[in-house]
Structure formats: C-alpha cells, structure tokens
Write a protein that binds this DNA or RNA. Structure first.
Length: 903
RNA sequence: GGGCCUGUAGCUCAGUUGGUUAGAGCAUGCGCUUGAUAAGCGCAGGGUCACUGGUUCGAGCCCAGUCAGGCCCA
C-alpha cells in the first residue's frame, strides 16, 4: 500500500552520478574540451571584451609538477577563469625557462668530456622532455591556456629578442666589464656555481702571522697585529687587515723561548692564540675597541707595501685572532671590503692556479698555489713574522668534476649598472599594486640594496653574451653588431654562435681579422626577465604592460625584480600593473617547507600527479582554493582527504538540485513563500561575496562562502525544508513551482560560481543543466541587491528554529517522541505582531520547521513546548494530520495528499 | 646576523576603527531518518586567541621582547 503512494511522489530524478569518479571522468572531459578547442572558442567569444592580461612566469623545465608548482599554476588558472567569467578577455600563454645550470649540470654529470655544442644539444633535449611532461601535467590539472603555442626561452625568436634587448642596454651605456671574485676550479679551468661545489675534509697549514705596525692613532708602534690564515698562498695578495668594530682588542706582551713581543689581537681570542702558538701573555695589556683601530697602518710581512687596518662587520670571533687577513682578489668578503675602501683587486693567480709575476716573489712565479704553501710559510718565518704554524682540518670546497680544491679568484665579468636604473625602478615600484601590500616594502628593500647585476656566466647552456674581442683582448660592445647577431639567431638559434668559428663570425659581421667571440653566456635571469619583450611585446593577443604577475614570494628578488630592472632599461616603465605573491607549500605537521620535511627516511608524496591520480584534479583545485595563499600554504595528505568530504557535499548539493529540477517548467505559475525569498536573498549575498572575492583574488573566501552555502543554506535548510513541497505537493502546485524556480536560479549561479575552482565538476553539472554549452563560456551572475527584508525574516525564523530544535531534542531524549513529525509543538511568541503575522501563514511556518502540528500562543520569552501529537500519520507524506481518515477513497492520507493523488 | 612576513578550536578560515559569555564549515561524540541512501537532518563537546610584559576603564586586535616557522640576503 505504502509503496503505491510512493509512486505518486515527485522524487528527485537525475543521471548526474553521486559518485564522482573524477580519475576516469576528468580525462574524458579534457579530451572533449580539446576536441572542441574550448580555449580557442573562449578567446574568440571574448575577442572584443576588455583584456585582463596575466603573464605567466616561466617555471624551470626540470622535474615533475609538485604541489608547489601546481599551486602556482592553478592560482593563475583561477585568475584566468574567473576573469573570463567576469567578462574579460583573459588569454593565457604558458612559458618555460629552459636555459641554466641545473640542466647543464645534469647533462654534464651524465657524460664527461662533452663539447659546448654537445652540451647544448643534450640540454635542449632534456629541457624539451620536461616541457612536454609538465605541459601534460598542467593540462591534466584543468589549466586552460594556449598549450600548443607556449613561449620557450630557447625559441630562436625569444633568444633573438634577448640579444636585441642587450643591444639597447649597450646603447644606453648600461653594460660594463669589471673584475669579480668567483669560485674557480683550476683543475677544470672554469668558474663554478655553488651547486658544483662539493665539500670535503682537507688538511691545511694554519699560520699566525705578525704584521708590524708602522703608524697608529692609538696602538704602540712597536707592536704587531696578529692574523691567522689557513691559505698562506693568499698572503702575496694581502692588502689589508680587518677587525670587528664591535669587539674589544688588546695590545699585550707575549713571550716565547725568551723572546718578548707586543701583539695586538681580539681580547676574546688571546687564550686560544696562546694555546696554539705557545706565546704566553705577560702582565696587563691595554684594551681598545675595534673601532679605534681604524687608521692603524701595518707593514706587509714580506712585501714592501702597507696593510691598513679596516673595520668590517663580517669579522667574527669563532676562529683566528679577530684580525682578518684581507686579500680582495681571493674572497667575497675581502672583495666587497676592498671595493668599498678603494683597495686594489690583486689576484696574482692564473687560470691554472699558478702564481703570476704579480705575486711579488720571483721564485714563486709559475708555482701551483697549494704547492707554494710551504714556501710561503718558510718565507714568512725567515722574515721573523711567523708566530706559529699548526695543521688545520676543515671542510673545504672542491670541484665536483676535477675533485681539486677550489680557489677564489677574480676574473673579468660583465655587469648592468643598477645605479642608473634604481631611482626610476623605485618610482615604478611605488606605482605598482602589490598583493599582499607588504610586497611593496619587500621589493623596495631588495632594489634599494641590490648591487650591480653580474650578467655573465662561464657556461654553455644559455644565450651567448654577444661580445667579440679585439686581438688585444678588449671587448667590442657594439649595439649594431649585437643586432646583427640577433638576426642570425632569429634564423638559426643561438647554436650558430657556438658552431661558427671566429673567422666565420668575424667575416659575417665585418669585424677585423683576429677578432674572437666571447665564450660567456647570459645569466638566465636575463632570459626570463625579458619575457615582457619576447612575449608581451610580441604576442598579438598580449600587450605591454601586463595586468598581473603572480608568483611565489621568492620572486620579489627573482623574476619580479629581473623583469622590472630590464624593463626600466628598455621601456622606462614597469612591465606589470599588479604583482600578486603566494607562499610556499609547507607540511601541516611540522610547518616546514614540504621539500625540507621530505628529507630523510619516509618520503611523503609531493607530486601533484600522485593526488590527481588518487582523487582527481578538482580535489587539487579545491585545495588550492581553500587556503589563504598569501601565507605559507598548509598541506598534508590527511587535509587532502578531508577536502574530499567538502567536495562530496558540494557535489551532492548540485545533484539534489538537478534531481529536483527534472520536471522544471519555466513558464509555470509560482507562489514564493518567505523561505523562497530568503534563499534567493542569500544567493544574492553569496554571489556578491564571490564576485568580490574573485575580483580581489581571495579565492579562499569563495570556497568558504560556497561551501557554507551548500552545507548550511541549501543542504540543511532550503533543500531539507522544501522536500515536503517538492515531493508531496501536486506537480503543478505553484509553491512547488516556486521552489523549482528558486532552485533553478540557485543551480545556475552556484555552478557558474564554482566553475573556476571545480572546473571539471561544474562542467559536468552544467552539461545536465544546459546540455551542449560549456560553463566556461558563461558569465558570472550579475551584481544585485539581496532583499534585506527577506534576510531579516530568515534570521528570525532561524532563531525560532534553533529554539524548536533544542526543545525537540530534549523531548526525544525524554522519549516523548522519536521522530520530529510525531511532535505537536506549541510556540509561545511574545510579540503580538509577529504572532499575528505567522498565525495567518501557519503552514509556511510548519513547513519551515518541518513539523506536523504547530500552535502559536502568547507568552513572555519565546519558548517551545513539545507533546506527542494525537493525529494519525499520513501514509504518503508521513506528517501527522487531523485530516487523515476523512477521505473515503484514500482513508490513510491527509487532505493535501488526497488532493495531490486525485488530480 | 640583517630585511620582509606568519602563529585564533584536531583541520581550513572569519573576527569590522580595541568594547558585552571569541564565530563558521569540516572532523569527533550522541541521536533521528532510510523518499538526496556508499546520502540527509538535529543536538552536544571542544579555544588561558604561540609565550611574557606593557599601554588602556577595557586587547585576539595597539606597543616591546621571547619562542616557533617561512621567503630573501649575509
């Protein structure tokens, strides 16, 4: 009997599956989009719309897409998709950064003895392999863009634009050549990057050396300043001594073997000096602040020149004497100090690590520096300057390839003058919008303090630094020649530079015989930093400047800065209007960067595809949308699993709406109630919140607004409340039709608002709602005002509902009722107007509270009293109603249901 | 060591110009439902707002310091 009446109900009907099956459904969806040329169709549809240009920062073509990379690309996609749906033309041209050491390093490690041309061939193959791999993975994540025509920094046209930009730098006199210290492998005869250095234990002679004072504002002139060094071979290049301005120094008598000397060193280091050398302190010393020692002049222990005492912050008290031997040609700190204080940059060592004439001791010329160590020690001793010699075990950098110890030496490099650009760059920074706003301070700080930009690298896998050298070794910096090289590169790629011989190139560009090409490449930050020229200025669908650059916070010093500096040199304006940064993905348990915590035994999965294959791209996208990305982005597998619940809730909400709309008729007569007006007002609020949040790139606000709307407003309220109407009322009942009208509007808005985030699921739902049209071609709902009266009504009803729910729960605990529909509820309302209002619309209130029987009474406080109803249960709608039994044909139904089944 | 930033329930987020018992969703527990059913609904528990000190009639919010973490430098 009951099952017969069940057939008369309007239960939800839809083929939209409850189970998502994203891992199989998404690839099908992708194929369909692909076949449809959806990206191209969207661009075509928006071709006359105002543009919003997000310019993709190129990831390095190396490795799989991990969660950090996925975060970045999905955020960009959220921008592109939401701007598109907000009515903009938002093209996305993805790019890759292809040159650079990490690739060259891998290639060279695989096979030794390659020529530069071979290294470049293998590096290109390597880069292209990972471009293809990453492209497939980005696509799989549902990121829309012109994947068939990305920009690659190894494209000949891109490389040519780099060279043309370089020509502009030359014209504007922004390029110069100067010495700079580098890590040098004399074994491989090349400069090395940090990554190519291996640290190994090494035993070095450690010596204490006395520098006699020749003049001093404070120190006694019969004293000597004591330095300590583990690289005696750098003494010929000594030009100064550095002391810490913050520490205390003493001048004190020391004796050893009957000899007494007055020595100056840091007070804190005296004890270990004595222990290591056997020189014992005598009597009381005089103390001085390090700052007071400035102005003291000492004499080099074996060369006829002075070594002034200078103060420097980098001097520490960890080892040595607190007095640091300074050789500007052989150390980074030394070099900086030397430059700042106007010292020479003396570097008497050649490519092979052999002393040159400049070392000042004829006998040492041509000797390998490490082999010369004992000679230097002996010489210092012979001059009476040696206070002690020990052997010192330390971790010392070695060349990964030749395994030889590394030396610091200065070589000629090319630089871009930052000073000429700094003031304008700082102005442009102020005119740019930074999100979050502290980005302004951060990039201002880096640009203010940044030294000149060293742009030359002694590498093969890169764009050649387009410089020729005259026979006398002088570089030829000629913009016109560089432009002609660019034209060559445009046709043949930069390989031409490496493949063609010096005479061929000289002949081609009309340079005198004997001219040679340079072997340096450009810093890869020049490559990516010039994308505003090679991409924004070149692609017809793009323009200069971009509306938005969006990268991780490390790019304040990286791409944001390199792009800005190069743009100042060429355009004089900023290449972007807004810069948006996101944090790094961190492990939620340790709050450490995910790549760090992955070190050691158990490796937590961090590849994006691991999660795509496990749960689907929409889950990864939902994760991206759910977090506040301006800080570090928390991540854990558990958190990811939790998001699955949120996803299912949203999916089921879409499903029930679709199910309830199976017989939707837009022309049907409707009769909306308070709850219908309320839910539409709430929808308007949610729409406005989402539009605003998308506009401000605050995607987590979209996520939370939509998640709560689905979970609370729809699932636990509106859908639950309207079930009785939807299922039990006659099909054409105007209130039922009103609920459908509301649900239709809700589904339409909700799906479109979800579309940028749940790109696949929204499309799937839309295919049931509007078959044949992609949701990604649609626009967001228009801005509108949420009816304040309807909202206020709803708030009041919710208060009453909370009260009644508590009372019902209590009654259930006391076994008065088990099911809410068994309850007869008496509601005491103090406000006579309110009582009056709802008395006339009691059925609406009953519906809202999902009750069988409700009575209103005057009272003080608002309270609800529960008793068990005496009315019989309607077999069709399960409500207990007095009218059950009145119909002869349907004795087990209430009057409403009788009417519904007899229609 | 320096610059910039972060720290609110188990998790993700709200907390308006400092103002009554700090909010929401998820998760958890206990019920209800079996006509969204590998679904749905209700109720409940859970936070000395990183820590310490200060300004104030009053601080999650302002100030100083400490601790933890991040990015970039050194």
């Amino acid at each position: 009997m009951g099952s017969d009446y069940k057939k008369t109900l309007n239960l939800p009907r839809t083929d939209f599956p409850m189970k998502a099956g994203l891992t199989t459904r998404e690839p099908q969806q992708l194929a369909a989009w692909e076949k449809d040329h959806l990206y191209a169709r969207i661009q075509e549809a928006r071709k006359n719309a105002p543009p919003f240009l997000l310019h993709d920062g190129p990831p390095f073509a190396n490795g799989d897409v991990h969660m950090g990379t996925a975060l970045n690309k999905i955020l960009k996609d959220l921008v592109v998709k939401s701007k598109t749906m907000a009515g903009f033309r938002a093209p996305f041209i993805p790019g890759w950064d292809c040159h650079g050491l990490p690739i060259e390093f891998k290639v060279v490690k695989e096979k030794a003895g390659l020529t530069p041309v071979q290294i470049r061939q293998r590096s290109e193959a390597y880069a292209r392999k990972y471009i293809d791999l990453q492209r497939e993975q980005f696509r799989r994540l549902g990121v829309f863009g012109d994947w068939d025509h990305p920009y690659l920094t190894l494209d000949p046209s891109y490389e040519a634009d780099i060279l043309r930009s370089f020509a502009v730098f030359i014209e504007k006199d922004l390029v110069y050549r100067s010495k700079r210290p580098v890590l040098w492998s004399y074994g491989a005869q090349t400069a090395l990057a940090e990554a190519e250095v291996e640290y190994k234990d090494k035993e070095s002679p450690a010596i204490h050396v006395a520098f006699e004072i020749t003049a001093s504002p404070v120190l006694p002139t019969n004293a000597s300043v004591v330095i300590w060094t583990t690289t005696p071979w750098t003494l010929p290049a000594n030009l100064a001594i550095a002391v810490s301005p913050k520490h205390t120094y003493s001048a004190q008598n020391f004796t050893k073997d009957g000899e007494t000397r007055t020595l100056v060193l840091a007070a804190d280091r005296a004890a270990s000096f004595s222990a290591e050398t056997g020189w014992m302190p005598q009597g009381e010393g005089q103390t001085f602040s390090g700052a007071a020692l400035e102005g003291t002049i000492t004499r080099h222990p074996f060369l006829d020149r002075p070594a002034p005492v200078l103060t420097a912050d980098f001097v520490t008290m960890d080892t040595g004497t607190g007095c640091v031997h300074i050789a500007p040609g052989h150390g980074a700190d030394d070099f900086q100090l030397g430059k700042a204080r106007g010292l020479d940059i003396l570097c008497p060592v050649d490519d092979l690590g052999l002393f040159t004439e400049e070392c000042g001791v004829t006998a040492w010329v041509g000797k390998p520096v490490f082999a010369a160590n004992p000679l230097v020690v002996e010489y210092v001793k012979s001059k009476g300057a040696l206070l002690g010699v020990t052997s010192y075990q330390h971790s010392y950098p070695h060349c990964w390839r030749s395994k030889t110890p590394i030396i610091f030496r200065t070589v000629e490099q090319f630089f871009i003058r930052i000073e000429a650009l700094r003031a304008d760059a700082l102005k442009a920074i102020k005119a740019t919008k930074w999100i979050p706003d502290w980005g302004l301070k951060r990039i201002t700080g880096t640009v203010e303090s940044r030294p000149d930009w060293c742009i030359s690298r002694q590498r093969s896998w890169g764009v050649p630094l387009p410089v020729f050298y005259r026979p006398d070794g002088e570089p030829i910096l000629d913009a016109n020649v560089v432009r002609r090289v660019a034209d060559l590169v445009e046709k043949r790629g930069t390989n031409a530079w490496f493949e063609m011989s010096d005479p061929e190139l000289a002949a081609m560009f009309g340079l005198p015989a004997g001219t040679t090409k340079g072997h340096d490449t450009l810093d890869v930050w020049i490559d990516s930093g010039l994308s505003h020229q090679a991409v924004l200025r070149r692609r017809p669908e793009l323009a200069y400047p971009a509306d938005l650059y969006l990268e991780a916070t490390d790019q304040h010093r990286g791409w944001f800065q390199s792009s800005l500096i190069t743009a100042m040199g060429i355009e004089g304006t900023s290449p972007y209007k807004t810069c948006l940064t996101h944090g790094f993905v961190v492990d939620v348990d340790t709050r450490e960067k995910i790549s760090k915590s992955a070190q050691g035994g158990y490796q937590k999965p961090t590849d994006a595809m691991h999660f795509v294959e496990k749960s689907g791209a929409d889950l990864v996208r939902l994760w991206v949308s759910s977090v506040n990305f301006t800080d570090d982005v928390p991540f854990s597998e558990e958190m990811f699993n939790r998001l699955g619940d949120a996803y299912r809730r949203i999916r089921n909400t879409l499903r029930i709406l679709l199910g309830n709309l199976h017989d939707y008729d837009p022309s049907a007569a409707t009769e909306p109630t308070a709850i219908d007006r309320w839910v539409l007002a709430r929808l308007a609020e949610v729409e406005n919140t989402c539009r605003d949040a998308y506009e401000k790139f605050e995607f987590h606000r979209v996520y939370h607004a939509l998640n709560q709307f689905c979970a609370v407003d729809l699932s636990s309220l509106y859908v639950d409340i309207t079930k009785d109407r939807m299922y039990c009322h006659a099909t054409e009942n105007p209130r039922r039709r009103a609920a459908q009208a509301a649900m239709h509007e809700i589904l339409s808005s909700l799906t479109r608002l979800l579309a940028p985030i749940l790109a696949f699921t929204a499309e799937e739902a839309w295919s049931y709602f509007r078959p044949g049209i992609s949701v990604h071609m649609e626009l967001f709902p228009e801005k509108r005002i949420a009816d304040p009266e309807a909202l206020a009504d709803g708030d009041r009803l919710l208060q009453i509902r909370a009260l009644v729910s508590q009372a019902l729960e209590k009654a259930r605990a006391e076994k008065v009722i088990t099911n809410n529909l068994e309850a007869a509820v008496t509601l005491q309302l103090a406000d006579a107007n309110e009582r009056e209002r709802w008395s006339s619309r009691l059925p609406e209130l009953e519906e809202f509270l999902i009750l069988s029987e409700l009575h209103l009474e005057p009272g003080g406080e608002v309270t609800a009293t529960i008793s068990k109803t005496s009315a019989p249960k309607c077999e069709r709608c399960w409500r207990h109603r007095g009218s059950v039994g009145q119909s002869a044909t349907h004795p087990t139904l209430c009057d409403r249901c009788v009417a519904a089944v007899t229609l």
